[in-house]
Structures are given as structure tokens and as C-alpha cells.
């Protein structure tokens, strides 16, 4: 009974983030003895983030009828998700005594008739093409962040929370790959075997500088460039078709960029896409069910007391809000 109460109080996004941080802490703690010098700061870092987030989650429950909760959750969730981008990659590299590169490369080779696809396109690489794809690789950041801002401010309340639940879940599941299947990517794994080095201009240098600043290629499986962009595009296709269609070619180019720039294996992209589509399907359903249960228990369906969304709750079909007209 107490757990059920807690289940209704804690937002699905909070469950996902707490779960992910707990996994990180448990993995760090379990491997602490053998890898102590490297893992200790990481463990401390993740424990601190966990404690801080739990404090936020408690505050969000205490003041769940306040307006600020509506905006604080997406901002804090996005900040934590972004901060984990590097730290979980490092954790996987430090805690696990193996690298998944060889297996991922073998799968890629099997998919492409025996040769890793980055070798197949090697003859096609020119500095201009590298720079073009580097631009699209960087564009991903603009796409994600603009989508998050528009998602937080421009969507109806229920749709907004569904959007963020799926987005956070996509990242969380992909991060599990970073922890348990650490890999550097084809650019590092096959570095000595390439005949054509990658050379580009401003955007390519920007990628190199950013990667170096965040500790190098840490964690590539599954691809978040692939997964997150598919998630955003797919969500938009269901709720704002023109925006979704606008980004279809850009998402394809982002996919191609990760392979051309030797950052991801193709299998990373495939699994990232699968994770994104699963979270796109499940995330909104989970959130919808949670909101309905809260509504039935007399709580505000969504934190922040956005009662205007309540009539739509009976119309969540297939995870998509199909109607608000019944409120008229």
C-alpha cells in the first residue's frame, strides 16, 4: 500500500533517473576493490548526483501542486542526463575489464558481407565530405536542444510529460550499454588499419576538440546520436507531422555522419533506433497510465496541478493523446 502510494507520487521520469543512477552506483561499488583509484571519484560523483536528485524528487512530491515543478523537472532531468553522458562512459571503461569493440566490429562486418563498413567507404572519404558530415553530426546538438526547449514550453501538459518520459528513458537504456558494453568506436579500434585519415574543417575540428575535452571516445553502444534523433523525429511525426518530416532527411544524414566519421558501428545505430522506438511506444503509455491512476486517487493528474489536461486522460489511445475536444 505504501509502495503504491510512492509509485503514484514519484514521476516516471524520476524513477528512470533514480534507477539509472542506482545501477551506476552499484556497478561502481561492486568494482571498487579491483579498480579503486579510478572508480572512487566516479562513485562519489554518482552518489552525489543520486542524493541531489532524490532531494529534488522529494521536493517535487512535497510541492507537487506548485507551478515550478512543471519546468524544474525537465530542466533538472536534462542536466543530469547530459552530465551522465561522460561520467557513465568513464564508469563503463573503468569498471569493466573488457571492451566490446571487437564484437561490435564483427557484427558490422557480418552485416556488410565480411568487411567493416568504415573500410568500405574509405575510398569515398574527402575532406569536404568529412566536413559536410561533421556539420550534420554537430547539428544533432542543436536539434536535440531545440526540441527539448520546444518540448518543454510548446506542448500541451500531458504530451510534454510523455515526451520527456520517453526521451529520458531512451538515454537511460542507451547508457546501460555504455556501462556494460564499453567500446571506443571504429575510429579508435581500427585506427591503425585505415589508409585514409579523416581531415575536415571547422566542424570536424570542433568535434575533435569536444571529444578530447570530455575524455575521448567513451561509450558508443548503442548510438545516442541515432537513438535520440530517431526518438525526437518519431515523436514529432505523431504530434507535429511537418516538424517530424522536416527532420527525416537530417536524421538520415546524422546516421550517415556517425559512420563516415568513424564514431559508431552500424549495429550501434540499429540498437539505438530500436531502443528509441521502444521508448517512444512505452514511455507515453507508462506516463498516461500513471496520470490516470493519480487522477483516480484524487491527486493532480500531473504535478503542477495542470487540471486542464484531465479530460484528455480518457482518450489516450496507443500512447497518443487523440483528443482534448471532450473538454469543450
Amino acid at each position: 500500500m505504501r509502495f503504491r502510494g510512492l509509485q503514484l507520487e514519484i514521476h516516471p521520469i524520476d524513477w528512470v533517473i533514480v534507477g539509472l543512477l542506482l545501477v551506476a552506483v552499484v556497478v561502481g561499488a561492486a568494482r571498487l576493490r579491483s579498480q579503486q583509484p579510478e572508480l572512487y571519484p566516479l562513485l562519489t560523483q554518482h552518489l552525489s548526483v543520486l542524493a541531489g536528485f532524490l532531494a529534488f524528487a522529494a521536493a517535487a512530491i512535497r510541492w507537487q501542486r506548485s507551478w515550478w515543478v512543471i519546468y524544474a523537472r525537465p530542466v533538472i532531468a536534462a542536466a543530469i542526463i547530459y552530465s551522465l553522458y561522460t561520467s557513465l562512459g568513464l564508469l563503463g571503461m573503468s569498471a569493466m575489464g573488457y571492451r566490446a569493440d571487437a564484437a561490435l566490429s564483427r557484427i558490422d562486418a557480418a552485416l556488410f558481407g565480411g568487411t567493416d563498413p568504415t573500410f568500405l567507404i574509405e575510398h569515398w572519404i574527402t575532406p569536404a565530405r568529412v566536413e559536410l558530415f561533421a556539420f550534420f553530426y554537430v547539428l544533432f546538438l542543436a536539434y536535440v536542444n531545440l526540441s527539448l526547449v520546444l518540448g518543454a514550453l510548446g506542448r500541451p501538459p500531458l504530451e510534454r510529460d510523455q515526451f520527456f518520459t520517453g526521451w529520458v528513458s531512451t538515454y537511460a537504456f542507451c547508457y546501460l550499454g555504455y556501462i556494460f558494453l564499453p567500446a571506443h568506436g571504429p575510429g579508435v579500434f581500427h585506427a591503425a588499419a585505415y589508409h585514409v585519415p579523416l581531415m575536415g574543417g571547422y566542424f570536424y575540428q570542433l568535434i575533435l576538440r569536444t571529444t578530447a575535452a570530455t575524455g575521448g571516445e567513451l561509450g558508443v553502444f548503442p548510438s545516442l546520436h541515432g537513438g535520440a534523433s530517431v526518438y525526437l523525429c518519431n515523436f514529432d511525426l505523431g504530434t507535429n507531422r511537418l516538424r517530424g518530416l522536416t527532420y527525416v532527411p537530417i536524421v538520415i544524414l546524422i546516421f550517415m555522419a556517425t559512420v563516415v566519421l568513424r564514431i559508431h558501428y552500424v549495429i550501434d545505430l540499429i540498437v539505438g533506433t530500436a531502443v528509441a522506438l521502444t521508448c517512444r511506444r512505452i514511455g507515453p503509455r507508462v506516463l498516461g497510465r500513471w496520470a490516470r491512476l493519480r487522477h483516480a486517487e484524487g491527486l493532480p493528474a500531473l504535478p503542477g496541478g495542470e487540471a486542464d489536461v484531465l479530460p484528455a486522460l480518457s482518450n489516450i489511445r496507443g500512447g497518443r493523446v487523440t483528443s482534448v475536444l471532450s473538454a469543450y
Binding site: G154, R155, P156, E159, G238, T239, N240, R241, L242, R243, R320, V321, T322, S323, V324, L325, S326, A327, Y328
Partner: peptide
């Protein structure tokens, strides 16, 4: 007029009420 609910218009491009609901109204 009823469909406006006397409130803010929905964002452009957002999911519209279904035609069945419209004709139901």
C-alpha cells in the same frame, strides 16, 4: 465558438481533435 473553449488557440501543427469528435459535437 464552442471549440475555442474561450481560451488560448492550440499551437499550430499540434494534434487536432478527430473528425469524429468534431461531428459528434
Amino acid at each position: 465558438i464552442i471549440a475555442t473553449q474561450g481560451g488560448m488557440p492550440r499551437p499550430l501543427g499540434s494534434v487536432e481533435p478527430t473528425v469524429a469528435e468534431w461531428f459528434g459535437l
